[in-house]
Design a protein around this nucleic acid. Structure first.
Lengths: 185, 185
DNA sequence: CGCTGACTTCATTTTGAATTGAACAAAGTC
DNA sequence: GACTTTGTTCAATTCAAAATGAAGTCAGCG
């Protein structure tokens, strides 16, 4: 329980103890661990709980579709967490469900159309934030304008600056979207 | 204590109860509240604790430099939190310290060179993340290559896709930096 | 229809990050 | 040099988000 800051220590192996081996080949477990670590590390930035990232990692790391039970065993989470995590991932469109005929259990495989995932991420997390910020900034400007005395000018100035940056960020998003679209696949 | 999700409810006033009035003009308190709310809402995305965002909000909203004590009163945090928050903000270069001669107390004012703040944000939070991810991905590829059987091909494929997106994101950062630099001020 | 297996839901618990506050500097003041 | 004022540090606490697990739902089976 060394308080390892995941940001400062660049690329130090995390091994959150998340991936349980269970009579599987070493190579497979190793690979899974590494993939899970990769996604878990990105979780915070992407705005998903680490457990969800771990589940996605397990699915992503398996060459064959995995079942609910597989996941629960491998990440060693409770059924409840797995269910919850899978719901989030389905809502994000991060998984494909593969119905194997002769079996009742649903199987999961990563949706490798990462482009959509990226797009959703941008729209949900960034666009939303910026839009809400825009409304707030408009309000801010009004409030500043109601400010008495000579300080008003300074405050309006500050708000304006904020707005300029906000606008820049907003202008950047469509560019990013376009850029990421290019040379797709 | 209505569990208001700050994400879903676009631009609903948050009023975290953070800003305490204290015989100040209504306009001033109103403005401060709005500014604090603005920064607090952005806190998560920017990767700072909300308390820190609130402190910055108070400093930003004040037309005159504010003291340590001012801040503590207005956000109603403990001295410890204010001290901690100010340290973070100083490290980020978000504040300027104004030493008023005849008084012992240090005063704070926002550093309005937001450009540097943005740049630091990009470098610290995004660049770091991406760099660490790059290292991890390289490892991943190796591990995948050690994978036995016909599944190897599929896994290498997946890792490659991941890498492509990662590279795109990395390519985007310098562009963003440049873009944000343009038409500065 | 009663059972079983495969999830889902949600009230409770856990955990880890944010926050407090009391003890500790440091820098004047008288 | 005792005292006050201003701020820092860090162990202990609080609190909200995440995780659990027991009870519930639903679909197929015999």
């Amino acid at each position: 329980m060394l308080g390892m800051s995941s940001v400062t220590a660049a690329a130090a192996p995390v091994d959150s103890g998340l991936v349980r081996a269970a009579g599987r080949a070493v190579a497979q477990v190793d690979f899974e661990s590494a993939v899970v670590d990769f996604f878990v590390e990105a979780a915070d930035l992407l705005g998903v709980p680490k457990s969800v990232a771990a589940i996605y990692g397990v699915v992503f790391a398996s060459p064959v579709p995995v079942s609910f039970a597989d996941i629960a065993v491998r990440v060693n989470f409770s059924k409840g967490s797995v269910s919850q995590g899978l719901r989030i991932l389905r809502e994000m469109g991060a998984l494909k469900e593969v119905s194997i005929e002769a079996d009742r259990a649903e199987l999961f495989t990563p949706d490798l159309e990462l482009r959509q995932l990226m797009q959703r991420f941008i729209e949900q997390r960034l666009q939303r934030q910026l839009d809400s910020g825009r409304v707030r900034l408009a309000g801010l400007k009004k409030t500043a304008a109601a400010f008495p005395g000579p300080a008003q000018k300074e405050l309006l100035q500050r708000v304006k600056k904020l707005q300029q940056w906000h606008d820049k960020a907003r202008a950047l998003l469509p560019m990013a979207k376009t850029f990421l679209k290019l040379s797709g696949r």
